[in-house]
Design a protein around this nucleic acid. Structure first.
Lengths: 157, 157
DNA sequence: AGTGATTAAATCGTTTGCGACATAAAGGTA
DNA sequence: TACCTTTATGTCGCAAACGATTTAATCACT
């Protein structure tokens, strides 16, 4: 006597909304990022560089949960835009160190206003501050839990 | 005297976790979907067909917030796998009606267990039921709000 | 020093996601 | 009916994601 629709409906209620919300938020950023001439994933890489300065591809990957197969081409595009530099580490020739160019550093100024504008467009929404903070908190826990699960999953193979 | 890091850090706290959570959840499904031989977006399309039966590309797009430029190729792949049929509507030759084949209908049985397994793997997590439900609720509101914003944004152009 | 395992990037192929545009059918109006 | 607009798909090109594999450097251990 298993219920039929509910299961396939219910699951829709976590994974799919996350997928939709993620795509929507990316879209919210797009007009602002177009002005800077970068994409959303490229913006995430710039964020890590603005925050933590020079670091290896590996480290960027650990922060964004991405690997070299995604990052290498993306970083090459940022290099072409002359926002970053890619240099082999003299200490370990395997690692590629990513650092900001002057143009990359300067872009931070113009990027500064983006979070404000995104947040501002939510001011009139029916989501209270408490609700928002609780949401954030659970979201963090979720990302953390998922990250652990995925890591286990990968180890199994 | 603007604070520098916080803004670019704070914004990191909504858009990026959503992006990460979405990618992680997709990854959680992958091993189960591999058995069925479909991808996660293809699974979402199958879900709408299992739930609402025959419908147009447009309708599927409205449910998943996707457009024909994404759906058409994806649907052709599902057609190649003989899970769906694509037929022009006789009433309106512009619309393409998507319906399930027998194989597509049968796959529902095997897909049934997936949500359970995903949920089960969260049982031991430190997220309470109340917390989870509050999270879901806010997530829905967020998707709704974002959807409205995006629609306005697109109208502006 | 020599050699097998590990590690960091990179490459390759496939599928998405999406902006911009094309095509063809249907609707609306003079 | 002729013509203009709207609508539903589809095509194209680019940029992610990501599994699988490759390459080259470093490590670990004898």
């Amino acid at each position: 006597m298993k219920k039929d629709v509910p299961a396939l409906f219910l699951e829709n209620q976590l994974c799919f909304p996350l997928y939709a919300a993620s795509r929507f938020t990316t879209k919210m950023y797009t007009p602002y990022l177009n002005i800077l001439g970068i994409t959303y994933p490229q913006y995430l890489v710039m964020l890590t560089l603005w925050q933590y300065d020079q670091q290896s591809v590996k480290e960027i990957g650990q922060r964004l949960f991405l690997e070299s197969n995604t990052l290498t081409p993306l970083l090459k595009r940022l290099e072409q835009k002359e926002l970053i530099r890619r240099t082999r580490s003299p200490l370990d020739e395997r690692t590629v160190l990513i650092s900001l160019t002057n143009a990359g550093i300067e872009m931070k100024e113009n990027a500064q206003e983006i979070p404000d504008k995104i947040l501002a467009s939510f001011n009139e929404e029916s989501i209270t501050k408490d609700e928002f903070e609780a949401f954030q908190k659970t979201l963090f826990k979720l990302v953390d839990a998922l990250n652990r699960k995925i890591t286990i999953q990968e180890k199994d193979e």
